[in-house]
Design a protein around this nucleic acid. Structure first.
Lengths: 148, 148
DNA sequence: ATGCCTGCAAACATTTTGCATAGCG
DNA sequence: CGCTATGCAAAATGTTTGCAGGCAT
């Protein structure tokens, strides 16, 4: 099961860097967060439960490292950045649904975008590396009531 | 031709607000920007050419108003927010291609997303109001050379 | 010892807010 | 007048950086 952690450790050490306790804690927090997309501040808060004097800057630096490694990806929403663990290989094909009322973010897996991507490349001459699709609306719970 | 401006004036006045000189200048700047997506700072800079003592806060407040009215939309990219005028009615169906090298943003019109949207609504119970699709890659000019 | 890592605080960039004043209707 | 709008400066956010010390090889 910690094949997972071991793999990340290998990737980190391949860059002559270390999977320190702080970095592991950040991973644990992200993993425990499930499908939640946490802000740096929230990750920091959670991390402090296990590692009381971890600094916010360390969290940011850690997230940056993990993003470089492809372990984590960032999602900019409403002026702040939220982070998620990339659990599968097919991270390319998952999109976000953002509730305009409660702010909750859920995910959706989908593979219909390849076609669109190819059309865009053909028509514009742009070489596409990645995409990012977000839907805004109201989740099941917030349906009907716009304020809450 | 200024059917356009008149329409916005009507929308503003319908809220018991006014289309002041400052607000008009912001509109002019956005209109002159063509397909460019300007940051608040850039809009402020341009606006000052015509209206030297317009304040940055006014620009922000104006952009907020116009966003409420659906006249302007915002695009968050790389930690900063960029603004664009919604020229057509079908603003729903235009997406952005962001060059990872030079940062230039171009647009692409597309209507293939309705299908995806309906599938998402069916499978998740989410009510979708809007979406936002961005492609990241290299534009024609930056192809090949990743640094420049 | 020589690296990478860390916490802290300061620096930064962007956006928002408070307030006194100005200006339209 | 009453109410919206403005400029300015201060405050609030969110993120990055510099640095002195710490820790693991």
């Amino acid at each position: 099961m910690d094949d997972w952690l071991a793999e990340i450790r290998r990737a980190v050490e391949a860059r002559d860097q270390r999977l320190t306790p702080q970095r592991q804690v950040v991973l644990q927090v992200l993993a425990a967060g499930g499908d939640h997309h946490l802000s740096a501040e929230e990750i920091h808060e959670q991390a402090r439960i296990r590692q009381p004097d971890i600094g916010l800057a360390t969290v940011y630096r850690t997230l940056e490292l993990f993003e470089d490694l492809g372990v984590v990806s960032r999602l900019e929403v409403g002026g702040e950045t939220r982070f998620e663990l990339n659990r599968e290989r097919d991270l390319h094909y998952h999109h976000h649904l953002i509730c305009l009322n409660c702010g909750r973010i859920q995910e959706f897996r989908e593979d219909l975008l390849d076609e669109v991507e190819r059309r865009v490349e053909g028509e514009t001459g742009f070489t596409i590396i990645d995409h990012n699709l977000r839907f805004f609306g109201y989740c099941r719970h917030c349906r009907g009531r716009k304020k809450s």
